[in-house]
């Protein structure tokens, strides 16, 4: 299992294209990250999240030849996860309205410090309510905050995941931060 631990994502893709068994390493590398990501941007229970995730990996495998080596593989597979969540909502006709994955202290600190709550919001209150606050945000605002402050993606990566220009991503993050501050009061 560890024999591919030092291989890059792109190398694993190349290996998988020749031998499907290598896809196992890609799944292992991304399953927990994507599971948490899906849980954070939706409100589905763990079983349903696994179903969505299963579809994500099957789609990723089917479309592996479409992966553009000029992009980061993580952006590409996060994009598939993003699309699969949208497909799930379309199928179930539900909308995300909560935020169910727990956050680590590090993630909370990261989100809280960047939102500069010293002036506006009590940091302890923000920490305790951060999950609820995220859950109250519009899905596009929640997702962009999750990507930026919890998944710690760069603007370029967020642009590649959401398929929006970087300028749009920047203003989306700004609006989301404002919404977050409002919602946390």
């Amino acid at each position: 299992m560890d024999k591919c631990g030092n291989k890059t994502d792109e190398e694993l893709v190349t290996l998988t294209l020749a031998d499907q068994d290598y896809f196992l390493y890609i799944i292992n590398r991304y399953k927990d990250k994507l599971f948490r990501y899906i849980r954070r941007i939706t409100n589905v229970d763990p079983e349903e999240t696994e179903d969505i995730l299963q579809e994500v990996f099957i789609k990723a495998y089917t479309n592996l030849n479409d992966f553009d080596q000029a992009l980061k593989f993580s952006s590409w597979i996060y994009r598939i996860a993003h699309n699969q969540v949208i497909t799930y909502y379309r199928k179930t006709k539900a909308r995300p309205h909560g935020h169910s994955a727990s956050l680590s202290d590090e993630e909370v600190k990261n989100l809280a410090s960047d939102l500069n709550p010293a002036k506006d919001v009590d940091i302890q209150l923000l920490k305790s309510n951060i999950q609820k606050t995220l859950g109250r945000l519009e899905e596009k605002h929640r997702e962009v905050l999750v990507l930026k402050f919890i998944e710690e993606k760069s603007y370029q990566e967020i642009s590649d995941i959401l398929r929006r220009p970087m300028g749009t991503v920047a203003s989306l993050i700004n609006r989301a931060k404002q919404e977050f501050k409002k919602a946390s009061k």
Binding site: I27, D32, Y61, T62, L64
Partner: peptide, 28 residues
């Protein structure tokens, strides 16, 4: 919260059992 290890093998089994193929590069 992490997913159990059987999850990865299960997906690979589904791919093999259902004989899910890679879409050929020429299509893209």
């Amino acid at each position: 919260m992490n997913i159990n290890n059987g999850f990865s093998k299960n997906i690979l089994n589904i791919i093999k059992k259902k004989d899910i193929k890679l879409k050929p590069r020429w299509q893209f």
